[in-house]
C-alpha cells in the first residue's frame, strides 16, 4: 500500500540571483512500513523536498504537483487541516538537534507538545507519556531529564529526544533530515541502531534524507539518488550498491573511502544555473551530444530499478 505518493513535484522560489529550481519533477512512492532514502550532495534540494511535504517552506516558495498522503493531496489542504497532519500523521526529525530545539523550554515541555496538542492529554498524562518515550529512546534517568534544558543534554541525547518528539504521536510517516549529521561516529551508530529498532517496533514509514551512504544502507529499503533537483536513480538498497547504473551514482559510490575515495570531477551545479539536457553531463565521462540537449526520462532497467540516463536507451 502506498502511504505517500509524490507526483510531478516542482518547488521553486526567487532569490536575488535568480530563480532557484530546488525540486524538478520528482515522483516518489513510500509504502507502509517502508524506509526510503533520498541520497544526494549538500545543496541538491533534498531538504527542501522534505520540508515541502509538510508545507513548512516560506510563503514565497512555489510548490506544484501533488503530494498524496493516504490518497489525499496535501497541497490542497487548508492551513488548519495541514496542522492536524503535522506532528500527528507525519512528523519530522531535523538535523542539528541543538539549534532545532528551543533553548528556553525544557526537553520535557518540547517533547510533550505534540501529544498535548493532538491527543489532548493533560499535563500529568503528557509528562508520563514523555517519560515513557524518553525511556524507549534509551535516555537514562528520564524522569529527571524531562525537566532539563536542551543545553544540558549531550549531542546524542538531544537527537534521541528529537526522535522521541517525532515518534510520540505514533505518526504514520517520519521525515528524517540528516538525523546523524554532526554526531560523532559511535553516537551515529547508536542513533542508527535506535532508529532501526523504533521503526521496526512501530511499523512507521520513513523518508530518510541524507548524504551519508552508510546510514542509508543501514536503514533504507529503497533509495533515490538526487542530483540538482531531480531523481536520477531509484532502486532497492542492494541494487544501488551492487549494481549502480547512473554514472553519478557510480561516481558517488566510488568517492566512498572504502571504494577508492575517487572524487567526481567538477562541482555540483547551483540550483540557479542548472545545465540543459541531462544535468550531470558537464561532469560525466560518458556524455554525448544528445546529453547536452535532451533531458533523459526515467527508464526501467530492472525490477523496481529506474535510471535517468541515455546509456540505457
Amino acid at each position: 500500500m502506498t502511504l505517500l505518493g509524490i507526483r510531478n513535484l516542482k518547488v521553486y522560489f526567487y532569490s536575488e540571483d535568480g530563480m532557484v529550481r530546488a525540486v524538478n519533477d520528482v515522483d516518489l512512492d513510500i509504502g507502509e512500513g517502508e524506509t526510503l532514502g533520498i541520497i544526494g550532495e549538500t545543496g541538491c534540494g533534498k531538504t527542501i523536498l522534505g520540508l515541502s511535504i509538510l508545507r513548512l517552506l516560506s510563503e514565497n516558495t512555489k510548490v506544484e504537483g501533488r503530494i498524496l498522503y493516504k490518497g489525499e493531496d496535501l497541497l490542497k489542504l487548508s492551513e488548519d487541516e495541514m496542522r492536524k497532519i503535522r506532528g500527528k500523521e507525519i512528523a519530522m526529525i531535523f538535523q542539528n538537534p541543538l539549534s532545532s530545539m528551543n533553548p528556553v523550554l525544557t526537553v520535557g515541555t518540547q517533547v510533550a507538545e505534540p501529544v498535548e496538542l493532538h491527543q489532548h492529554l493533560d499535563n500529568q498524562n503528557a509528562k508520563e507519556k514523555v517519560i515513557e518515550m524518553l525511556k524507549s529512546v534509551r535516555i537514562p534517568l528520564p524522569s529527571k531529564r524531562v525537566n532539563e534544558y536542551p543545553h544540558e543534554f549531550s549531542g546524542g541525547m538531544r537527537q534521541r529526544a528529537m526522535i522521541a518528539m517525532g515518534l510520540i504521536c505514533m505518526p504514520s510517516l517520519i521525515i528524517a533530515d540528516e538525523p546523524t549529521t554532526g554526531l560523532d561516529v559511535t553516537t551515529q551508530a547508536q542513533i542508527v541502531e535506535l532508529m532501526k529498532e523504533v521503526l521496526k517496533d512501530s511499523g512507521t514509514s520513513m523518508l530518510l534524507i541524507t548524504h551519508d551512504l552508510g546510514v542509508a544502507a543501514e536503514l533504507c529499503d529503497h533509495m533515490a539518488v538526487m542530483y540538482p533537483g531531480e531523481i536520477v536513480e531509484y532502486a532497492d538498497v542492494r541494487n544501488i550498491f551492487k549494481n549502480p547504473k547512473h554514472p553519478y551514482t557510480r561516481g558517488f559510490l566510488d568517492s566512498l573511502p572504502g571504494r577508492g575515495l575517487k572524487p567526481i570531477p567538477g562541482i555540483s551545479p547551483s540550483l540557479i544555473n542548472i545545465p540543459e539536457g541531462c544535468k550531470f553531463h558537464p561532469r560525466c565521462s560518458y556524455a554525448t551530444g544528445r546529453c547536452k540537449k535532451e533531458r533523459p526520462q526515467m527508464k526501467k532497467v530492472g525490477e523496481k530499478h529506474f535510471v535517468r540516463c541515455f546509456l540505457y536507451d
Binding site: 520540508l51 509538510l54 513548512l56 496542522r83 492536524k84 497532519i85 503535522r86 506532528g87 500527528k88 512528523a91 519530522m92 531535523f94 542539528n96 539549534s99 532545532s100 530545539m101 528551543n102 533553548p103 523550554l105 518540547q110 507538545e113 505534540p114 496538542l117 493532538h118 518528539m165
Partner: peptide, 20 residues
C-alpha cells in the same frame, strides 16, 4: 530552526509566537 520544529509539530502560529 527551533521555530520550524515547533511548526512541524502542528502548533498554531499563535502558540509558536507566544510560547516558542
Amino acid at each position: 530552526d527551533y521555530i520550524r520544529t515547533a511548526r512541524a509539530k502542528g502548533l498554531s502560529e499563535k502558540v509558536v509566537i507566544s510560547k516558542h
